[in-house]
């Protein structure tokens, strides 16, 4: 009796920043994101900043245990964990999340996770220097991911279709083997392909940020319907922490520290530096659910349908819930911190 009284007092004072909460706090909150598998338990995205810098912990109070999981199995593994009820929040790429949504598992999009640069690389020695010249060659990607989507978008922009190339569907580690052994001529991947270039195995012929920002892989931050329904206030606190992390990353003086945090994941510091070269993290890791974000997700949903990755339709307007983010931006006075972008990524207002 005394013990539980003490505990609840502790909870009350521990969460100094929290207004008298009407809802009981959850004992633990489980987060999921993509990990690289060879470093520490940390990823290379906004949620990793919110995790390591303690932005979410500060919002929900120290009594709530936060559990961060970085999945090397990427999207499919995160989907399984959400469906199993092992995760309450997740940040990951658009395609797997669309696939999960189409199966009827309840999630809400509560913030954008920002874009991942996508690189097109070709084995050194091959006379291929542009996307158009990929015609007749084999390209390895992992299908049903943002890489698959980005590749086909880029082909389309260059007047090609998937029938003009041979797609070899492999996991990241096996893609390297396929390139090294000559089974594949080209690969579409994330910054994980850069070390290959540094070893002289491949050359970069395309990067989405430089050549076609619309094909830069989108990601989002999700909450499960079950968690949001049970803990709406806690969900708000988590989103506040997420937005604070985005604001922290956006400041140029924190850039170096952010890269150092992400480098703990095992992705090399040099690759990360190049990933964001000539760019403000403020622009790339924009957490807002604006027209650019919605356009990319709508594209992803169409793509999934065309490619028969989903059996049921996904209604984006029912899926995106901007209310938490709007409230967080208002609370933090950040309504105008990020500019509004139109569907093509052009800034329309400040």
């Amino acid at each position: 009796m005394i013990r539980s009284l003490l505990l609840s007092l502790l909870t009350l004072f521990g969460g100094a920043g929290i207004a008298a909460a009407a809802e009981p706090a959850p004992g633990a909150i489980h987060f999921g994101a993509v990990g690289s598998g060879y470093g520490q338990q940390v990823g290379t995205q906004l949620i990793a900043i919110a995790h390591i810098k303690g932005f979410i912990q500060a919002e929900v109070g120290d009594a709530v245990k936060l559990d961060f999981n970085y999945f090397t199995g990427t999207g499919p593994a995160i989907n399984e964990a959400i469906a199993n009820g092992q995760l309450d929040f997740a940040q990951y790429g658009s395609l797997p999340s669309i696939i999960l949504r189409a199966t009827g598992v309840g999630t809400k999009i509560i913030a954008s996770g920002g874009g991942t640069n996508i690189y097109g690389v070709v084995r050194t020695g091959l006379p291929i220097n542009s996307i158009k010249e990929l015609k007749g060659h084999s390209v390895t990607i992992q299908k049903a991911t943002i890489l698959h989507w980005s590749l086909l978008e880029t082909l389309k922009a260059n007047g090609l279709t998937e029938r003009d190339i041979t797609i070899l569907d492999l996991k990241t580690a096996d893609q390297l083997a396929a390139l090294a052994s000559g089974s594949a001529d080209a690969e579409f991947g994330t910054a994980s392909v850069l070390p290959l270039r540094d070893q002289g195995l491949v050359k970069v012929i395309y990067t989405s940020q430089r050549d076609d920002p619309r094909a830069t892989g989108p990601s989002a931050f999700f909450v499960t319907d079950a968690f949001a329904a049970k803990y709406p206030e806690t969900t708000q606190h988590v989103v506040n922490g997420f937005i604070k992390a985005a604001q922290w990353v956006a400041q140029p003086e924190n850039r170096e520290e952010a890269l150092q945090i992400w480098a703990k994941s095992g992705v090399s510091y040099a690759s990360l530096k190049e990933e964001y070269a000539n760019e403000q993290l403020h622009d790339r890791l924009d957490p807002r659910l604006d027209d650019f974000f919605r356009g990319q997700y709508a594209d992803g949903i169409d793509f999934a349908k065309q490619q028969k990755l989903t059996r049921k339709d996904v209604d984006l307007s029912q899926w995106v819930d901007p209310s938490y983010e709007a409230k967080a931006l208002a609370t933090l006075g950040l309504q105008n911190y990020w500019p509004n972008r139109d569907v093509n990524g052009a800034v329309v207002s400040n």
Binding site: L170, A178, S181, G182
Partner: peptide, 8 residues
């Protein structure tokens, strides 16, 4: 073996 024989 994947590196030796390639994917195929």
């Amino acid at each position: 073996l994947m590196l030796i024989f390639g994917i195929g």
